[in-house]
């Protein structure tokens, strides 16, 4: 401890001072609730009768493993993540590239692509619920122009989740587009000018300059889209309430249903904790894998003299 130089001490102090507001607000409004939630998950806390709460150990967690609806919620959430994350990120990137360059009217299109985000998920979900209707819904009216018979969409167990996926990709792409755009501002202009001298075509510039330059932003966007997709809730609540027959129930919706609607706080908290735990484990695993790769590289460098 004594070995810390005066300079490092100053840096530590500065760093913590910059972190201070975040630490204060983060502790009070995030960490304290999480710890409380953690404690609740080992109790039978029933919202309507808090005074009779007892510790029940791992009972809530054990119950979860035999809860068929919870299983369904996990499968649905995974399906949502697998479909939405790649599509949404790719669409967002394409949109950002389309409106990145300065050209006449690009502001209008930027607005158009961002419109669903501005309209907010609540409203968009409400509108799509109407669009998806079997009778009189826009999608079925369009299909009928091509002679396709009316589809159930949200009222069909097989299609409902995919319908929600489609709407989500479309609604959320503008959000990620904005972040991509902020990232694209940072791509150095000199690089493009140099490429112009080499007479590189647009595709080469995209692949060799733009994409590598925004790789960190891309990583960021993928992570937040992934996290957002795991937490899918609003659209389910508004469009289907988890139905038909639980075919669109997701983990966070189930947390809400159990913990808030059915007042079973203990059980709901247990789901939240398990959900977080799985994510922590996954990121540790990823960290571990990265470390492993690093070690292996160093080992190779030392033993094989590096390539």
């Amino acid at each position: 401890m004594n070995k810390v130089s005066a300079r490092q001490k100053r840096i530590n102090f500065t760093g913590w001072m910059f972190m201070l507001p975040a630490l204060v607000f983060g502790t009070v409004f995030l960490i304290v609730p999480i710890v409380m939630c953690f404690v609740f998950s080992f109790t039978d806390f029933y919202m309507l009768r808090p005074e009779s709460t007892l510790f029940v150990g791992f009972e809530n967690y054990v119950d979860l493993f035999s809860d068929a609806i919870f299983g369904k919620a996990i499968t649905n959430t995974l399906l949502f993540v697998v479909v939405v994350v790649p599509l949404q990120c790719l669409l967002a990137l394409v949109l950002a590239l389309l409106v990145n360059k300065r050209w006449r009217g690009c502001g209008v299109f930027k607005l158009a692509y961002f419109a669903p985000v501005i309209t907010s998920m609540t409203v968009v979900a409400l509108l799509f619920q109407i669009f998806y209707q079997r009778d009189g819904g826009i999608f079925n009216l369009l299909l009928s122009l091509f002679g396709v018979e009316a589809q159930g969409f949200l009222q069909d167990e097989g299609q409902a989740m995919l319908c929600i996926c489609f709407m989500s990709v479309w609604q959320g792409a503008g959000y990620q587009m904005i972040i991509f755009l902020a990232g694209l501002q940072g791509v150095s202009r000199e690089l493009y000018e140099a490429a112009d001298i080499d007479a590189a075509n647009a595709w080469d510039k995209l692949v060799h300059i733009t994409l590598p330059s925004i790789a960190p932003v891309t990583g960021f966007v993928v992570i937040i889209t992934l996290v957002g997709a795991f937490k899918v809730f609003t659209q389910v609540q508004i469009m289907t309430n988890g139905g038909p027959n639980n075919s669109t129930i997701t983990v966070v919706y189930y947390i809400f249903q159990k913990g808030m609607s059915e007042q079973l706080v203990g059980y709901g908290s247990a789901i939240s904790m398990l959900f977080t735990l799985v994510f922590v484990a996954a990121s540790l695993l990823r960290g571990g894998a990265a470390k492993g790769v690093g070690l292996y590289r160093r080992y190779r460098e030392r033993v094989l003299g590096g390539y």
Binding site: G152, Q155, N241, G243, P244, N245
Partner: peptide, 20 residues
Amino acid sequence: YEVFSTEMSKAIKDILTSSN
């Protein structure tokens, strides 16, 4: 009653509207 009425309503709604 909370869960009863919610789940029964959902079931009736599915029966009325779902293609399944």
